[in-house]
């Protein structure tokens, strides 16, 4: 199996590479179109700020490529947010693959960023990857994807948000499966087996 991790200069990709290595999967970190297109699975990780991340994607032409990909594709953290339509973070137009919006956590007594282990509850249960009830995952983010038609996992924080999304071959999670212990490893394995 060929796994490509999209390289767009976004933060901590090393953890994802190491997590895949622990699962016995060799992955390649790349921004090369041909390598990405010929991969069996694609992972789109990242940390950082939405506008800067979009600029990095545009500079590499990846903003045009990503929406056309047909393989199982997994966005993680900001990777998930970038798949959406629009982010409140610096008023950024995103890739528009999943028609949902990204907002900033706000609220009296609400700690921002949302940091730590929280449970995800299944919102729609078509694929085994989303059978995540009562499992804890590690989250660290200040912006969140609103709940909507493509929400597969819900998380209770603030007024509740999307911990998982899916539209066709595009899967996405807000938490870090590569840092979420056994539960995260299980989810990555299920993605690799889709």
């Amino acid at each position: 199996m060929k796994v490509a991790i999209i390289d767009y200069g976004a933060g901590n990709v090393r953890s994802v590479l190491f997590a895949l290595e622990r699962l016995g999967v060799e992955a390649v970190l790349t921004d090369d179109f041909q390598t990405i297109c010929s991969a069996d699975k694609i992972i789109f990780p990242g940390q950082g700020e939405a506008r800067a991340a979009m600029r990095q994607l545009q500079a590499r032409g990846l903003d045009k490529l990503i929406p056309q990909l047909k393989q199982p594709f997994l966005g993680i953290c900001i990777g998930m947010q970038l798949l959406c339509e629009h982010s409140e973070e610096n008023n950024t137009k995103c890739l528009g693959v999943i028609p949902q919006k990204v907002r900033l956590f706000k609220g009296h007594d609400l700690k921002v960023p949302h940091v730590g282990w929280n449970t995800a509850a299944t919102a729609t249960s078509n694929a085994p990857i989303w059978h995540a009830d009562l499992k804890y995952y590690y989250f660290v983010h200040s912006y969140f994807v609103e709940k909507g038609d493509f929400t597969t996992l819900r998380c209770d924080y603030g007024n509740g948000f999307s911990a998982g999304l899916q539209k066709d071959n595009f899967y996405a999670v807000q938490f870090h499966p590569e840092k979420s212990g056994r539960a995260g490893e299980l989810l990555l394995n299920q993605f690799l087996n889709t």
């Binding site: 997590a19 290595e21 622990r22 590690y138 212990g181 490893e185």
Partner: peptide, 8 residues
């Protein structure tokens, strides 16, 4: 450490 650790 990172290679072997599945928590932050």
């Amino acid at each position: 450490i990172a290679r072997n650790l599945n928590i932050p």
